[in-house]
Design a protein around this nucleic acid. Structure first.
Length: 294
DNA sequence: AACGGGTGCAACCGCAAACGA
DNA sequence: TTCGTTTGCGGTTGCACCCGT
């Protein structure tokens, strides 16, 4: 499962745990502990204890609350099942779509994906993916985004060579099925949603050498990786708190750049520098940026 | 009704990072 | 800095349930 690297410290730790717990190094003393599904009574005890004393110190919690469950088990039960704000079941089509897109970006980073779906747990998303969405995503993989998709990112396209005249053109990537090459992505940092991490992670997956993404003086993330990617990787579903007001500079072949069918607006004659980001009418901060508004 | 294979999902496991003394 | 403990994560397991035969 994991790598076989033997960390001496970890080995010592495991040795201690094995010694302490008996034959198997799982958690606490397994022979005195309940295992398997939780009873309603156990749930009640755990819930009452957490409501009074708060989360954390799970091992201590299990002892003090009189639960014959190991600390890990208590934590898991609370986080995945008992916590009040948890939504369970009935995953909507919007959520499905978001999971698929996030998985495409992040891979099996379930906790990160869950972090973007309020009320959903990593375990639920992982199970949902493994039992249902994986197949669905495979079918969806080849789909070119349709014009009806609600895509909150606009792209500014630089022509080959980044000539001055080319700045400001806005293309509809959904009308261009050609793969593009990303040379630079600038994203405004949103306090409520850390889009920087998301984008960084996606680059990291493909290109470990681009592990760090710097922020500039204007608190925009900025990277100069030369990374092949499918333009649809950046197309995200619109969510109230999950918005990609993005500015991607991409290299595209000249003939695509000159293709009028892709071009939506070329009225801007000059580059809008990213320090003017928030004043740029092409990247409004507070409204839906679906392509229908072009 | 009984059986067996497939499926979904809660719970478990091992590992590593984070934390704190 | 070191070491013990706690927390968080992702992969895996095992069991209940479903459905076809």
């Amino acid at each position: 499962m994991h790598n076989t690297f033997q960390n001496p410290r970890i080995e010592r730790q495991r040795g201690r745990e094995i010694e302490k717990m008996g034959r198997k190094a799982n958690c606490d003393n397994q022979y005195a502990m309940n295992r398997g599904p939780w009873s309603a009574e156990e749930d009640k005890i755990l819930m009452n204890y957490v409501q009074v004393h708060g989360e954390g110190k799970w091992r201590e919690l299990s002892k003090r609350a009189g639960l014959k469950r190991c600390g890990k088990s208590c934590r898991l039960r609370w986080l995945n099942y008992l916590k009040p704000d948890i939504k369970r079941g009935n995953i909507s089509s919007d959520e499905e779509d978001l999971i698929i897109r996030l998985h495409k970006l992040l891979g099996n980073r379930w906790s990160l994906i869950a972090g973007r779906l309020p009320g959903r747990t990593d375990n639920e998303i992982k199970n949902y993916w493994n039992t249902y969405l994986r197949k669905k995503a495979e079918h969806k993989h080849d789909k070119i985004p349709s014009h009806n998709d609600n895509i909150p990112i606009k792209l500014r396209i630089e022509s080959p060579g980044c000539s001055k005249n080319s700045f400001g053109n806005v293309l509809d990537p959904t009308k261009s099925p050609h793969p593009m090459r990303c040379t630079k992505v600038m994203m405004p940092v949103n306090d409520s949603v850390n889009t920087t991490n998301l984008i960084t992670t996606s680059w990291d997956n493909h290109n470990p050498s681009s592990a760090s993404m710097q922020l500039d003086d204007y608190n925009h993330c900025l990277t100069g990786v030369l990374q092949e990617f499918d333009i649809s990787d950046l197309l995200m579903s619109y969510e109230d708190d999950f918005r990609f007001n993005g500015y991607a500079c991409v290299e595209i072949p000249q003939h695509i750049f000159e293709d009028e069918t892709c071009r939506l607006d070329d009225s801007l004659g000059e580059e809008a520098w990213y320090e003017n980001w928030k004043n740029d009418p092409y990247f409004p901060q507070d409204q839906d940026m679906g392509f229908s508004s072009f």
